[in-house]
Design a protein around this nucleic acid. Structure first.
Lengths: 256, 256
DNA sequence: ACTCTCAACTCGTAAGTACGAGTGACGTCA
DNA sequence: TGACGTCACTCGTACTTACGAGTTGAGAGT
């Protein structure tokens, strides 16, 4: 299979060659790629060039490299965990494939203040006092991890005494408490993705070149004012979000 | 500022040095880093070492490098576009911050077949015939781009004649057509994130080290059978998804 | 005053060489 | 038989040298 004939930089050509080898099934998920030395022979290029090609494939998340062993084709990341958001129409509830997190450690409870990011979301000025609860969640079956944070403004804790006394109330019960306090709840949730910071990589055990999914949810009460703010961060290699939506007219869900 | 004294590989030490320079404000967003030659002098290392350090910072999304000019500290990317999904309760519709895409080019219409990925989502066997419509969408204000794909099984096109005649019907009208054909629609939407493939990077103009958000939506008709499948891919640096949810009881939205 | 060319700067690619460090298998020795 | 060490193989880091290619500004020429 001698030299190569493709456009662009040499290392890009080698990378493209390997890439197509993966897509044609020459290299199957889990299988090792040829070693650097073999790739050097195969494509008649220098070692730095081979290594740049491999680095490019790593950055794309296509392969995984283990020091002393070799490079392996990464399995297509079929998400191990699907986080479900089920929205119902007019009282009829249905849930599919509900996934249950477990708490790996005791929650971390502390006090903090609103920042330039969290303040506007809670419709509070910067520097307002909050309770914060951090949890490391795990799915024992798949070893999947997620970071969950709840921010509770003092104003909300004043309304719901139990939140002031025990901010680390199980997340499952908080919505019930807010409802019990007389609120009809609505939620605003945003989903974004980015590369993890070093400490997030450590906590979530994400491999190279895998982004994290970051969701931010505000829960609103009767006066449409935000009551609490939740953040969920999870590795995108193992986690996806699912939304099940029933609407009353096709105009209520935007196309595209 | 001579040599360096930090743990780990040399290039990691240089990268950490520059990283802390960014966080201390020595290098502010938009400002140029010292040139490679200057960094070589400053830290007394070779050019490959400096370049590896710079490559690491690029992979983290911290800096941007322009050929022939220099390396620049990247500004924190506030998403320019929010894609809204508005779910309503019992007939009352409300929309906030609606964002409108424009089509950059004529849609690409072609025929294809179900794959191992798309087959199960459409509840069809592998190899079933489909219409496919690819669109490159842009937001002219922010130069944000997105890739949209609609897959229409022949069975659905048979039910709705206009889809068979013109699969490239505007996406905004497809839901209306399906409703007109007698369907009450529900949607299942999943959100995942991953690093872009080279052709996606080209099409979406994403900078280094920015993932893409990938959403997959199936539209279901009266018998809960999938009618069409839509995919939307957008750069996570400029795009986030927002879900506005009104439910009837707190038990209908899962905590966490 | 304007335009064009060129030189000097920037980063990008490619080669060659050397050595360090992790992994696993084989063989020796107790 | 079992434990250990060695060796061959893998990838990781680092230096040197060389040239290509994009960007910019200064200077010469018109």
């Amino acid at each position: 299979m001698g030299e190569i004939q493709r456009p662009g930089a040499l290392y890009q050509q080698v990378a493209a060659e390997i890439r197509s080898g993966i897509s044609t099934g020459e290299y199957t998920p889990g299988a090792p790629l040829p070693s650097e030395a073999q790739l050097i022979d195969r494509y008649r290029v220098s070692r730095p060039t081979v290594r740049k090609a491999i680095a490019a494939l790593r950055a794309e998340g296509l392969i995984e490299v283990i020091h002393g062993k070799g490079s392996y084709v990464r399995a297509v990341p079929a998400p191990a965990v699907t986080i479900e958001r089920t929205i119902t129409r007019s009282g009829k509830t249905f849930r599919t494939g509900h996934h249950q997190w477990q708490q790996a450690e005791a929650p971390t409870v502390y006090r903090t203040t609103t920042t330039a990011t969290t303040g506007p979301l809670l419709e509070l000025a910067e520097g307002e006092a909050l309770f914060a609860v951090d949890r490391l969640l795990t799915d024992p079956d798949t070893e999947t991890r997620a970071l969950h944070r709840i921010l509770i403004p003092f104003a909300t804790a004043d309304q719901v005494k139990q939140l002031a006394e025990a901010p680390d109330t199980e997340p499952e019960q908080i919505y019930a408490l807010l409802t019990k306090a007389g609120h009809t709840l609505t939620w605003h949730e945003t989903v974004s993705a980015r590369m993890p910071l070093p400490d997030e990589r450590t906590a979530l055990h994400t491999p190279d070149a895998t982004p994290i999914i970051h969701t931010t949810r505000t829960t609103h009460g009767n006066d449409q004012h935000p009551l609490i703010l939740e953040e969920l961060r999870a590795g995108a290699d193992r986690t996806q979000l699912a939304y099940h939506i029933t609407a009353d007219s096709p105009r209520t869900l935007h196309t595209v």
